[in-house]
Design a binder for these strands. Sequence first.
DNA 1: TCGGAACGGAATCATCTGTTCCGCTCTACC
DNA 2: GGTAGAGCGGAACAGATGATTCCGTTCCGA
Lengths: 224, 224
Amino acid sequence: MSDESSRGLSGRRGHAKRNDEAILTAARDVFVHDPGAPISAVAGRAGVGISALYRRYAGKEDMLRQLCRSGLQRMIVEAEAVEAEPDGWVALARFLERVVDADVHALTTRLAGAFTPTPELREIAARADRGVALLIERAHASGRLRADVVAEDVALILEGCAAIRSGDGFRTMQLRRRHLALLVHGLARVEGPGDVALPGPAPQPGELHRWPAESGSPEQGADG
Amino acid sequence: MSDESSRGLSGRRGHAKRNDEAILTAARDVFVHDPGAPISAVAGRAGVGISALYRRYAGKEDMLRQLCRSGLQRMIVEAEAVEAEPDGWVALARFLERVVDADVHALTTRLAGAFTPTPELREIAARADRGVALLIERAHASGRLRADVVAEDVALILEGCAAIRSGDGFRTMQLRRRHLALLVHGLARVEGPGDVALPGPAPQPGELHRWPAESGSPEQGADG
DNA sequence: TCGGAACGGAATCATCTGTTCCGCTCTACC
DNA sequence: GGTAGAGCGGAACAGATGATTCCGTTCCGA
């Protein structure tokens, strides 16, 4: 008994700690499914009351910020996880699979409009973007990536995959993987007459950014 | 003056007829952008009052139904528009481009959860699905489509494209076209060792359907 | 001239939801 | 053993939102 309590696994403290995770998981599940979900849905899913949430987070916005941050961090982790892969092309493909499997894109992008970012968050986002850019660079170097693909295309790809939904969570993942496979196949360079350049100006750095520029120009806010 | 009025282009009647279109267009624009938008947003965008909407539609649900129907019909029109194209592969690609350009997928799918379908609507949807199936069949016959692609993959592709968004409407279309090009490239058969089969069970007919089966089995409703 | 189609928009009514608050439980510590 | 308070459940509160109704007004059309 004293063993358990000293490790924080039982008693009031341990229970609270377990709730920390239950709530975080529930929040992730709920908001990935529906970015506009009410906070009570999170409480319900976690099997706790509202006050258990407010004990941990200053408010809904704070909660979403944390969630977004954890998503961005996960993205960075996945980028690092494929760093050791010697083949740049394979690294990119594996990275995309991992991110899709982690279902992290909705957190980092869909949620982003619902709160004002902290400087810290901007920095983490920048780090994540840099990781992606590096992967694209390596993939280009491998010679197997279409020459006209840019780092920002990754955002389009992830967005497209995240949009796939079916009633069942597991099936959703299968379908996303299938869709991703199609996309990765599309990313591959093809020599010969079959190759047609991707149309339109490529997405520009910053164009698809989660939040409007730091401060100053009152650009298009754009979302409703 | 009598000329115009006889053609319904001026006067109270003509104005009303023009409002018909303005409202329909506004509704399309608004709900494509945000399926959960309030009806007042449509009125605002159309430059009319709320009552102008309620004169034409029984309620919001009715409006969404009409919108969905027009979207499905547009889909059928686009399928017919490429029927004459002799090359089945080209026909499929052109069809996808047309549907993406018409920005019709959000209407036919995203909106579908917001109202109960009429039998008529189900039938139109079935006709649209048949059109797509035919295009896939022809594309297979041309020999240029990956063998493991099925008709239901089209839904995934359109969903993925519809998910792409930027602040500007025109730019959004450019980016969708770019993404689509990647996808179409991915759809192309590649002979040789580079070819990897699409993973997971292919999407089944009915699996991605807009509405739960006609009646009877209380399956997963699934959406929030 | 006049009935009423067409309409604008305020008022209504029903939710929905973020946040606060109160009282309870049960642990951690003395 | 007793007690302060961490941790919590959930009702209450306050504000927003939004579909729908309703009423007064305008102005066409006969």
